[in-house]
């Protein structure tokens, strides 16, 4: 096994709110190897986006460690952090909001290179822009267009080109396709997978779309209210979901199969609990159909139930839930 590009240990991010501590990310640990993709899934408000931003230190973590190529970046000073930022980039969800409307495509792609002083001459810079545009499949004639003149797919390609401008090793993809329509989603996903192969990139892929995550990820982490409740290689997770929340999530995927008609999906009832001052035991307790009194005796812990497959449900160990 290779040394992981990114390793996150017990990462926590709490926000202070008037009502109390909001546990946006609570004790999340994982590692991503070179050229691999960790998919992070979960419903809205479960802390996926905060997790991505915290890893890049756009939001300062409350506690925990983030190792990038073996170096703990949570303690780095501003100047050293700038060098690391080159190697860690971000692709945004909304290609309409993530591009400065007053900058042309070439200016947008140039910016990271200018800021990081990567090119010595203007000519070299223009050359790089051309290369990057070709890499992400943008026609050279678009070089002077403005974001509002392009469609969503092209804008997202510009966003990807900007992220690639600094030759990163690791990219946080924050729902990069959820704002696009389905035909363009596939194009962008395939582009990202091609780029991953070419450049040996590692992705942290945040999404709520299970079919997307199945397509792109090598490993999947399921999040619920700031905690990682189940983590397993993609095929294993889809074949044998163990945590009750994952089971419910997967059963909600529509199936095109007439024989499955009439089979009720395992739908969840009730609302998501508030992430402000959450309970100390399983946070899924109030919505879990398997919940029992014993659940209240166990605090959160992600345990390995089979090689590579982790779950936070205590009943997975006792064998009560298969």
């Amino acid at each position: 096994m290779d040394k992981p590009v990114l390793e996150v240990n017990h990462l926590k991010k709490y926000f202070k709110t008037p009502a109390g501590q909001l546990h946006a990310v609570d004790d999340v640990s994982f590692a991503i190897e070179k050229g691999h993709t960790l998919g992070v899934v979960g419903e809205s408000g479960c802390g996926k986006t905060t997790l991505g931003r915290t890893i890049l230190r756009l939001i300062e973590p409350t506690s925990g460690e983030i190792y990038f190529n073996g170096e703990d970046i949570t303690k780095l000073k501003k100047d050293n952090m700038k060098a690391i930022r080159r190697k860690m980039q971000l692709i945004f969800q909304d290609p309409y909001a993530s591009l400065n409307p007053r900058m042309s495509v070439s200016e947008i792609i140039k910016e990271p290179m200018i800021v990081n002083k990567m090119c010595s001459s203007k000519k070299e810079l223009d050359e790089k822009v051309k290369e990057l545009m070709e890499l992400v499949g943008l026609a050279p004639r678009l070089v002077n267009t403005y974001p509002h003149e392009m469609d969503g797919g092209r804008r997202q390609r510009v966003g990807i080109a900007r992220a690639l401008a600094t030759n990163p090793e690791f990219i946080v993809c924050d729902e990069p396709v959820s704002a696009l329509d389905v035909s363009i989603q596939a194009q962008i996903l395939n582009l990202m997978m091609d780029l991953q192969e070419k450049k040996q990139l590692s992705y942290l892929f945040i999404t709520h779309d299970l079919s997307v995550v199945k397509h792109i990820s090598t490993e999947i982490a399921v999040m619920y209210l700031g905690q990682c409740v189940e983590k397993a290689p993609t095929e294993e997770l889809f074949a044998h979901p163990r945590h009750p929340y994952t089971k419910a999530l997967l059963s909600a995927i529509p199936v095109i199969d007439i024989s499955q008609r009439g089979k009720k999906p395992e739908l969840l009832t009730g609302e998501v609990n508030s992430p402000v001052n959450p309970v100390s035991y399983c946070r899924f307790y109030s919505r879990c159909k398997y919940a029992c009194d014993k659940c209240k005796e166990h605090s959160y812990e992600l345990k390995e139930i089979s090689p590579g497959h982790f779950s936070a449900c205590h009943m997975n160990f006792t064998g009560e839930i298969e």
Binding site: L90, F92, Q93, D94
Partner: peptide, 21 residues
Amino acid sequence: QEFIEAAKSCGSSNGRIIFKH
């Protein structure tokens, strides 16, 4: 807005963000 965050994530300084973005 996200494009400000994008500028921050590639290491732009505060001055550059204010004047350029």
